[in-house]
Design a protein around this nucleic acid. Structure first.
Length: 185
DNA sequence: CTCTAGATAAACT
DNA sequence: GTTTATCTAGAGT
């Protein structure tokens, strides 16, 4: 519909608003991807966020321009993909419903049926590399297409954190298959 | 792998 | 006595 750049369309959005808006969006990375069904918001003044204690070499792109990727290594082995929102804020992409490049993603996931369910699996299926840290979602490799209308959302506490466990900053697409974990009722 | 927090050691006044 | 530097174990969107 619109060809307005993503950066303009999300300008000024805080991480929670962007996390809600990205559910239902189409994410493509070099010809593979699908519809985002699960996100988490990480804020600037958020004890669970990598940005909480200010910029470091690893989290530098969280303080860069909105609409770019923040890719970090998790547990020394996985990679995780985020979309940068406002300064020091980002949205973790936790699960996709695969639609495009499924053959490629199956090959990268070496036969696992869980193609994009969970942030580490998603990054592997999409072929995310650590060098993608800071890359723009501008259609040159990475693209994001926001949904025209907001779908019905689920909300709950974020996964795998020890701080700020009360905040319902994990969002999911109601009824979606492939959520990394169910949402509490 | 990257970073933090706690512990220990070194340097300073 | 106080501050700063260095080491290391443990956690980690």
């Amino acid at each position: 519909m619109s060809d307005t750049p993503l950066a303009e369309r999300i300008a000024g959005l805080d991480a929670v608003t962007l996390a809600r808006r990205l559910v239902g969006a189409e994410l493509l990375v070099r010809g593979a991807g699908g519809v985002i069904i699960e996100t988490e918001a990480y804020g600037r003044d958020d004890p669970a966020s990598h940005s909480f204690r200010g910029p470091t070499r690893r989290n530098a792109s969280m303080f860069g321009p909105a609409g770019h990727a923040y890719v970090y290594r998790s547990y020394g082995i996985h990679l995780c993909l985020n979309v940068v929102a406002g300064p020091g804020e980002a949205v973790l992409i936790r699960a996709l419903a695969p639609t495009t490049g499924i053959y490629l993603m199956q090959a990268r996931r070496r036969g696992s049926l869980l193609l994009c369910s969970g942030p580490g699996r998603l990054a592997e299926a999409l072929g995310i590399r650590i060098e993608d840290d800071g890359a723009p979602f501008d259609g040159t490799g990475f693209s994001l297409t926001l949904p025209s209308s907001m779908p019905e959302l689920l909300a709950g506490p974020r996964i795998g954190i020890s701080k700020a466990q009360d905040l319902p900053w994990r969002f999911g697409l109601a009824g979606a298959e492939g959520l990394s974990r169910p949402f509490p009722r």
